[in-house]
Design a protein around this nucleic acid. Sequence first.
DNA 1: TACAATCATTATGGTTGTACAACCAATTGA
DNA 2: TCAATTGGTTGTACAACCATAATGATTGTA
Lengths: 154, 154
Amino acid sequence: MTGSPARDAASDAPSDAAGRVWTGMRTLVLERHDRRRQVTEATGLSFVRVKALRRIAAGPLSMRELAARLSTDKPYTTLVVDDLERRGLIERTIHPADRRQRMLAVTPEGLRIAQIARGILDDPPEILRDLPRADLAALDRVITALVEAEHPAE
Amino acid sequence: MTGSPARDAASDAPSDAAGRVWTGMRTLVLERHDRRRQVTEATGLSFVRVKALRRIAAGPLSMRELAARLSTDKPYTTLVVDDLERRGLIERTIHPADRRQRMLAVTPEGLRIAQIARGILDDPPEILRDLPRADLAALDRVITALVEAEHPAE
DNA sequence: TACAATCATTATGGTTGTACAACCAATTGA
DNA sequence: TCAATTGGTTGTACAACCATAATGATTGTA
């Protein structure tokens, strides 16, 4: 994959629209409205644990699948899941068809915590909500299509 | 919030446009196109160090300011800056008007590394570049305005 | 001059994240 | 049946991160 044409690495702003959009999105998500700290404080969990919990809350899955989703290795996944289980937020059960696999599922308490995290993370910044209807609709149409296009199955 | 049973913890999409846009942006930036690993491999620096280096490359600043920008404390900032200095990527100089302060500035080599990081982080994903011109222009207009509105001074 | 306040560093300790090797249990298939 | 494979755990080691307290140097000020 050949990237974009020659780009001036020294200039401060990207010269093309795609670059501006990308950098803008990263600025908003990573700098202006990063809620990691809030979430770890509200849940008492480290951020990977929150990600793991949310993933499990979205539907049962195996250790292997969870490790892939967190893009980490299996041993560390075991560590994280051990902790979540110790706290009573998830449960391990043996996969009925393959006794090697552990299926992970949230407990009611785990679901509660996951929803707290969701409330914080997915809460759109005011400035987005205050956008003119037409602008918001435009963003919605294009961005939703982008997400969908990359992962049609999900 | 309707609380319908279909509203399943972390899985489904928010019902309003702002929520969909926000979650979509987060998905693209944090899940689909996270380049932390690439950057740390390409630069040989941990990610906070990359952030610190980029911040210094954007213009000289003091330890206190850098700590605030990285939203961390001063002692840890000292640690990070020590490492960058040891690698010859930045230089500490005493502030001419206030000898307590250290002003941080990149070296030529530091600038080179910062540009490598920038090339990776700010390179927009293909799917964004391949967007129809009108869609891209719409995103550009709205998102650039958003970023600008939040930080008019910068 | 004495005092408090500010900027940065040193020292220390703990948690979290990441990687790798070795291992056990269950499954698959020659 | 037995070797290879897969899913997961244990053990170990280290790097990265983050906080708190104490210290030194400099500045501004009563």
